[in-house]
Design a protein around this nucleic acid. Sequence first.
DNA 1: GCACTAAAAGCAAATTATTTGCTTTTATGT
DNA 2: ACATAAAAGCAAATAATTTGCTTTTAGTGC
Lengths: 161, 161
Amino acid sequence: MLATLERTEVTVPLIAAEAGVTPSTIYRRWGDLQELLADVAVERLRPDMVPVDTGSFGSDLMAWAEQYAEEMSSGPGREMIRDVLAAQDGSGAYQCCNFTRQQIEVIAERAEERGEIFPDVETVMDGVVAPIMYRILFGGAPDAAHVERLVTASLAAKPAL
Amino acid sequence: MLATLERTEVTVPLIAAEAGVTPSTIYRRWGDLQELLADVAVERLRPDMVPVDTGSFGSDLMAWAEQYAEEMSSGPGREMIRDVLAAQDGSGAYQCCNFTRQQIEVIAERAEERGEIFPDVETVMDGVVAPIMYRILFGGAPDAAHVERLVTASLAAKPAL
DNA sequence: GCACTAAAAGCAAATTATTTGCTTTTATGT
DNA sequence: ACATAAAAGCAAATAATTTGCTTTTAGTGC
């Protein structure tokens, strides 16, 4: 029902009716529409899968980054990010950042077990995640070749010894 | 007057009164509060200075990045970014990104005239600007040491030959 | 199981914001 | 000066938000 509406057409009274509650319940629990939308978006951005294991850090990261860029660039992806960032309460954004970091940590842990040498997680956040997100938010979505270049470049950065 | 209020206390009728116009004028021109705030924020984010010339690409970029990170991490900086990104119309974000790109282009043009070798602008956007912005938006503000590391790393990336 | 309590939800009135149709002003070209 | 079109004012209608108070719900100790 609500999914078919434009962002500007979604209102608290509407959501309340949909949920079978009175609007004041929603206002008291969330304060305003943006906080509610942010909460919903954070839940929807929570990863529901472990990154696929393709055999090496490099290819795991490449596969993950490609999928991440694609999902986040999509219409729904952008709206969810927007919703999270628009909220007054910054904790949603922080959570999302952690979801992402944890996914990369999973990839890193597997690489560790294999005895690979690989860049540390913060390097990947700066070198891969941040540019993807920046371009989605501020410019056009990054294309596949760009994502590939970001991943390749960050793989060249070796960890502190 | 308005500057002393919290974001959630700023309303269209208030701004209208402040401006000495009727609210409907504002609603007709901007549609809603967020578009208006985004417009204001874009104007305030427009750079009013040329990056200082310190003698080389590396030190110019370092000085610029430090100031950029500081300004954008500040309370008002964060609010302006938030306002720009919260707008339905994505053109504000695109403009802000271009403001930044143009600043880096100025630094690059000076380096070109000096005959320096330096990373291309998109590399700097990905390697310096994006991580700074990502951390401001999604986590804690980046500290000075982090910014310095980002700049140093991106300087090592030489342009395509 | 029953009474007690605190938190959450309902309800409805009051307030505030938003939209809209219509009128008036303002700016511009002739 | 007049005609025109765009922008602004005004005010009524609609919709959203806030709030005080009542009712329900869920949990706790007896």
